[in-house]
Nucleic acid binder design. Structure first.
Lengths: 113, 113
DNA sequence: TTATTATATAAGCATATTCTTATATAAACA
DNA sequence: TGTTTATATAAGAATATGCTTATATAATAA
Protein backbone atom coordinates (compact mmCIF):
# COMPACT_ATOMS: atom_id res chain seq x y z
CA UNK A 1 0.00 0.00 0.00
CA UNK A 2 1.33 3.36 -0.99
CA UNK A 3 1.08 6.35 1.29
CA UNK A 4 0.11 9.62 -0.26
CA UNK A 5 2.83 12.11 0.45
CA UNK A 6 2.08 15.76 0.95
CA UNK A 7 4.35 18.40 -0.42
CA UNK A 8 4.68 20.47 2.72
CA UNK A 9 5.68 17.52 4.88
CA UNK A 10 8.04 16.35 2.15
CA UNK A 11 9.66 19.80 2.13
CA UNK A 12 10.23 19.52 5.86
CA UNK A 13 11.77 16.08 5.49
CA UNK A 14 14.03 17.36 2.71
CA UNK A 15 15.05 20.29 4.85
CA UNK A 16 16.14 17.82 7.52
CA UNK A 17 18.13 15.89 4.92
CA UNK A 18 19.51 19.11 3.51
CA UNK A 19 22.43 19.21 5.87
CA UNK A 20 25.60 17.30 5.16
CA UNK A 21 25.93 15.94 8.67
CA UNK A 22 22.35 14.75 8.97
CA UNK A 23 22.27 13.37 5.44
CA UNK A 24 25.38 11.34 6.14
CA UNK A 25 23.90 10.16 9.44
CA UNK A 26 20.74 9.00 7.72
CA UNK A 27 22.70 7.28 4.98
CA UNK A 28 24.69 5.38 7.58
CA UNK A 29 21.71 4.63 9.82
CA UNK A 30 19.84 3.18 6.89
CA UNK A 31 22.10 0.15 7.15
CA UNK A 32 23.72 0.30 10.57
CA UNK A 33 22.69 1.25 14.05
CA UNK A 34 25.07 3.78 15.53
CA UNK A 35 25.49 5.41 18.87
CA UNK A 36 26.27 9.03 19.54
CA UNK A 37 29.93 8.57 20.35
CA UNK A 38 30.49 6.87 17.00
CA UNK A 39 29.12 9.88 15.20
CA UNK A 40 31.23 12.15 17.35
CA UNK A 41 34.31 10.24 16.18
CA UNK A 42 33.07 10.14 12.58
CA UNK A 43 32.23 13.77 12.12
CA UNK A 44 34.91 15.30 14.29
CA UNK A 45 32.26 17.39 15.89
CA UNK A 46 31.51 18.13 19.50
CA UNK A 47 29.17 15.73 21.27
CA UNK A 48 26.44 18.31 21.85
CA UNK A 49 26.45 19.25 18.17
CA UNK A 50 25.98 15.59 17.24
CA UNK A 51 23.27 15.15 19.86
CA UNK A 52 21.39 18.14 18.54
CA UNK A 53 21.40 16.81 14.98
CA UNK A 54 20.18 13.47 16.22
CA UNK A 55 17.46 15.13 18.22
CA UNK A 56 16.16 16.86 15.13
CA UNK A 57 16.05 13.55 13.34
CA UNK A 58 14.37 11.92 16.31
CA UNK A 59 11.83 14.71 16.75
CA UNK A 60 10.78 14.21 13.15
CA UNK A 61 10.29 10.51 13.85
CA UNK A 62 12.67 9.59 11.05
CA UNK A 63 15.03 8.01 13.52
CA UNK A 64 14.46 6.08 16.72
CA UNK A 65 16.69 5.43 19.66
CA UNK A 66 17.26 2.51 21.94
CA UNK A 67 19.42 2.53 24.98
CA UNK A 68 21.85 -0.34 25.39
CA UNK A 69 23.65 0.01 28.65
CA UNK A 70 25.57 3.23 28.65
CA UNK A 71 25.03 3.83 24.96
CA UNK A 72 22.09 5.17 23.05
CA UNK A 73 21.81 3.62 19.61
CA UNK A 74 20.00 5.30 16.77
CA UNK A 75 18.47 3.68 13.73
CA UNK A 76 16.19 4.58 10.86
CA UNK A 77 12.54 4.19 11.82
CA UNK A 78 10.95 1.88 9.23
CA UNK A 79 7.42 2.73 10.34
CA UNK A 80 7.71 6.39 9.47
CA UNK A 81 5.29 7.48 6.75
CA UNK A 82 8.18 8.85 4.73
CA UNK A 83 10.51 5.90 5.29
CA UNK A 84 10.28 4.67 1.69
CA UNK A 85 10.67 8.20 0.42
CA UNK A 86 13.79 8.75 2.47
CA UNK A 87 15.28 5.38 1.53
CA UNK A 88 14.70 6.21 -2.09
CA UNK A 89 16.38 9.59 -1.79
CA UNK A 90 19.46 8.22 -0.07
CA UNK A 91 19.67 5.21 -2.34
CA UNK A 92 21.28 7.46 -4.93
CA UNK A 93 24.02 8.64 -2.61
CA UNK A 94 27.43 7.04 -2.29
CA UNK A 95 27.53 4.64 0.64
CA UNK A 96 29.49 5.63 3.69
CA UNK A 97 30.87 2.25 4.62
CA UNK A 98 34.41 3.52 4.43
CA UNK A 99 33.65 5.79 7.35
CA UNK A 100 32.50 2.87 9.45
CA UNK A 101 35.60 0.95 8.44
CA UNK A 102 37.76 3.81 9.64
CA UNK A 103 35.97 3.65 12.96
CA UNK A 104 36.61 -0.07 13.21
CA UNK A 105 40.24 0.41 12.29
CA UNK A 106 40.53 2.88 15.14
CA UNK A 107 38.74 0.52 17.50
CA UNK A 108 35.98 3.05 17.94
CA UNK A 109 33.12 1.04 16.56
CA UNK A 110 30.69 0.15 19.34
CA UNK A 111 28.95 -3.18 19.17
CA UNK A 112 26.55 -4.74 21.63
CA UNK A 113 26.50 -8.40 20.65
CA UNK B 1 26.00 6.67 -18.02
CA UNK B 2 25.44 7.29 -14.38
CA UNK B 3 26.91 10.28 -12.62
CA UNK B 4 28.43 9.74 -9.24
CA UNK B 5 26.70 11.92 -6.74
CA UNK B 6 28.52 13.37 -3.80
CA UNK B 7 26.87 13.64 -0.45
CA UNK B 8 27.73 17.25 0.25
CA UNK B 9 26.37 18.50 -3.06
CA UNK B 10 23.32 16.32 -2.60
CA UNK B 11 22.75 17.90 0.82
CA UNK B 12 22.86 21.34 -0.78
CA UNK B 13 20.36 20.30 -3.43
CA UNK B 14 18.08 18.86 -0.77
CA UNK B 15 18.34 22.04 1.24
CA UNK B 16 17.14 23.94 -1.82
CA UNK B 17 14.24 21.52 -2.17
CA UNK B 18 13.57 21.72 1.55
CA UNK B 19 11.30 24.69 1.26
CA UNK B 20 7.63 24.31 0.43
CA UNK B 21 7.61 27.13 -2.11
CA UNK B 22 10.71 25.99 -3.97
CA UNK B 23 9.72 22.33 -3.86
CA UNK B 24 6.36 23.16 -5.39
CA UNK B 25 8.06 25.32 -8.00
CA UNK B 26 10.37 22.49 -8.98
CA UNK B 27 7.52 20.01 -9.08
CA UNK B 28 5.62 22.27 -11.44
CA UNK B 29 8.64 23.21 -13.54
CA UNK B 30 9.44 19.55 -14.06
CA UNK B 31 6.50 19.42 -16.45
CA UNK B 32 5.68 22.99 -17.36
CA UNK B 33 7.58 26.16 -18.06
CA UNK B 34 6.34 28.99 -15.91
CA UNK B 35 7.04 32.67 -15.67
CA UNK B 36 7.47 34.70 -12.55
CA UNK B 37 4.04 36.29 -12.58
CA UNK B 38 2.39 32.88 -12.68
CA UNK B 39 4.18 31.87 -9.53
CA UNK B 40 3.25 35.16 -7.93
CA UNK B 41 -0.41 34.34 -8.62
CA UNK B 42 0.03 30.73 -7.54
CA UNK B 43 1.73 31.29 -4.24
CA UNK B 44 0.05 34.52 -3.27
CA UNK B 45 3.44 35.88 -2.49
CA UNK B 46 5.05 39.17 -3.39
CA UNK B 47 6.94 39.30 -6.66
CA UNK B 48 10.34 39.90 -5.05
CA UNK B 49 9.86 36.91 -2.76
CA UNK B 50 9.12 34.73 -5.78
CA UNK B 51 12.05 36.17 -7.72
CA UNK B 52 14.39 35.44 -4.84
CA UNK B 53 13.34 31.81 -4.65
CA UNK B 54 13.79 31.47 -8.39
CA UNK B 55 17.19 33.05 -8.19
CA UNK B 56 18.32 30.48 -5.66
CA UNK B 57 17.14 27.73 -7.96
CA UNK B 58 18.83 29.39 -10.93
CA UNK B 59 22.09 30.00 -9.05
CA UNK B 60 22.25 26.29 -8.30
CA UNK B 61 21.81 25.56 -11.99
CA UNK B 62 18.77 23.40 -11.27
CA UNK B 63 16.58 25.77 -13.20
CA UNK B 64 17.19 27.83 -16.30
CA UNK B 65 15.46 30.89 -17.63
CA UNK B 66 14.56 32.12 -21.05
CA UNK B 67 13.10 35.46 -21.82
CA UNK B 68 10.11 35.58 -24.11
CA UNK B 69 9.15 39.14 -24.73
CA UNK B 70 8.27 40.75 -21.46
CA UNK B 71 8.20 37.48 -19.57
CA UNK B 72 10.98 35.37 -18.18
CA UNK B 73 10.14 31.69 -18.27
CA UNK B 74 11.77 29.19 -15.99
CA UNK B 75 12.17 25.48 -16.54
CA UNK B 76 14.02 22.56 -15.04
CA UNK B 77 17.52 22.27 -16.45
CA UNK B 78 17.88 18.72 -17.83
CA UNK B 79 21.64 19.01 -18.17
CA UNK B 80 22.24 19.53 -14.47
CA UNK B 81 24.30 16.74 -12.91
CA UNK B 82 21.58 16.18 -10.32
CA UNK B 83 18.67 16.38 -12.75
CA UNK B 84 17.84 12.68 -12.50
CA UNK B 85 18.22 12.80 -8.75
CA UNK B 86 15.82 15.71 -8.47
CA UNK B 87 13.31 14.17 -10.84
CA UNK B 88 13.39 11.03 -8.79
CA UNK B 89 12.82 12.89 -5.54
CA UNK B 90 9.87 14.85 -6.87
CA UNK B 91 8.39 11.86 -8.65
CA UNK B 92 7.01 10.74 -5.30
CA UNK B 93 5.22 14.00 -4.63
CA UNK B 94 1.61 14.72 -5.58
CA UNK B 95 1.40 16.58 -8.85
CA UNK B 96 0.45 20.22 -8.77
CA UNK B 97 -1.64 20.31 -11.93
CA UNK B 98 -4.65 21.57 -10.03
CA UNK B 99 -2.75 24.74 -9.29
CA UNK B 100 -2.06 25.34 -12.95
CA UNK B 101 -5.73 24.67 -13.70
CA UNK B 102 -6.72 27.31 -11.18
CA UNK B 103 -4.45 29.72 -12.97
CA UNK B 104 -6.04 28.91 -16.29
CA UNK B 105 -9.50 29.26 -14.82
CA UNK B 106 -8.54 32.73 -13.65
CA UNK B 107 -7.07 33.58 -17.05
CA UNK B 108 -3.68 34.01 -15.47
CA UNK B 109 -1.83 31.30 -17.29
CA UNK B 110 0.75 32.82 -19.62
CA UNK B 111 1.41 31.08 -22.88
CA UNK B 112 3.74 32.09 -25.71
CA UNK B 113 2.61 30.00 -28.64
C1' DT C 1 9.12 59.59 -25.94
C1' DT C 2 6.44 58.38 -21.96
C1' DA C 3 3.68 55.01 -19.53
C1' DT C 4 2.83 50.36 -18.36
C1' DT C 5 3.98 45.68 -17.30
C1' DA C 6 7.27 42.15 -15.89
C1' DT C 7 11.19 41.15 -13.46
C1' DA C 8 15.48 41.83 -10.65
C1' DT C 9 18.04 43.71 -7.05
C1' DA C 10 19.16 46.09 -2.68
C1' DA C 11 18.63 46.95 2.10
C1' DG C 12 16.64 45.96 6.34
C1' DC C 13 14.33 43.11 9.71
C1' DA C 14 12.55 39.00 12.14
C1' DT C 15 13.31 34.46 12.76
C1' DA C 16 15.73 30.07 12.18
C1' DT C 17 19.76 27.42 12.21
C1' DT C 18 23.97 25.62 13.93
C1' DC C 19 27.43 25.95 16.42
C1' DT C 20 29.84 26.83 21.24
C1' DT C 21 30.46 26.20 26.38
C1' DA C 22 28.59 24.86 30.63
C1' DT C 23 25.90 21.84 33.08
C1' DA C 24 22.55 18.02 34.01
C1' DT C 25 21.28 13.20 33.79
C1' DA C 26 22.00 8.18 33.44
C1' DA C 27 24.40 3.98 33.51
C1' DA C 28 28.52 1.36 34.80
C1' DC C 29 32.26 0.46 37.64
C1' DA C 30 35.67 0.68 41.51
C1' DT D 1 29.23 5.32 47.84
C1' DG D 2 32.04 8.34 44.44
C1' DT D 3 34.08 8.34 39.76
C1' DT D 4 34.03 7.67 35.04
C1' DT D 5 31.74 7.39 30.58
C1' DA D 6 27.90 8.43 27.52
C1' DT D 7 24.40 11.38 26.46
C1' DA D 8 21.09 15.35 26.78
C1' DT D 9 19.88 19.93 27.56
C1' DA D 10 20.33 24.94 28.20
C1' DA D 11 21.92 29.40 26.99
C1' DG D 12 24.28 32.34 24.05
C1' DA D 13 26.50 33.93 19.73
C1' DA D 14 27.31 34.04 14.78
C1' DT D 15 25.39 33.32 10.63
C1' DA D 16 21.75 32.05 7.35
C1' DT D 17 17.18 32.37 5.67
C1' DG D 18 13.02 34.38 3.96
C1' DC D 19 10.36 37.83 4.04
C1' DT D 20 9.34 43.16 3.50
C1' DT D 21 9.59 47.77 1.01
C1' DA D 22 11.80 50.63 -2.24
C1' DT D 23 13.96 51.03 -6.42
C1' DA D 24 16.26 49.64 -10.82
C1' DT D 25 16.05 47.46 -15.34
C1' DA D 26 13.89 45.61 -19.60
C1' DA D 27 10.44 45.02 -22.88
C1' DT D 28 6.10 46.59 -24.76
C1' DA D 29 2.48 49.72 -25.94
C1' DA D 30 0.45 54.26 -26.54
Amino acid sequence: MKHELDIETAANILKLLGDKTRLTMIKILADHECCVCEFVALFQMTQPAVSQHLRKLKDSGLVKESRKGQWVFYSLNPSHTYYDFVRNVISHLPNQLSKLKELEAQGKRISCD
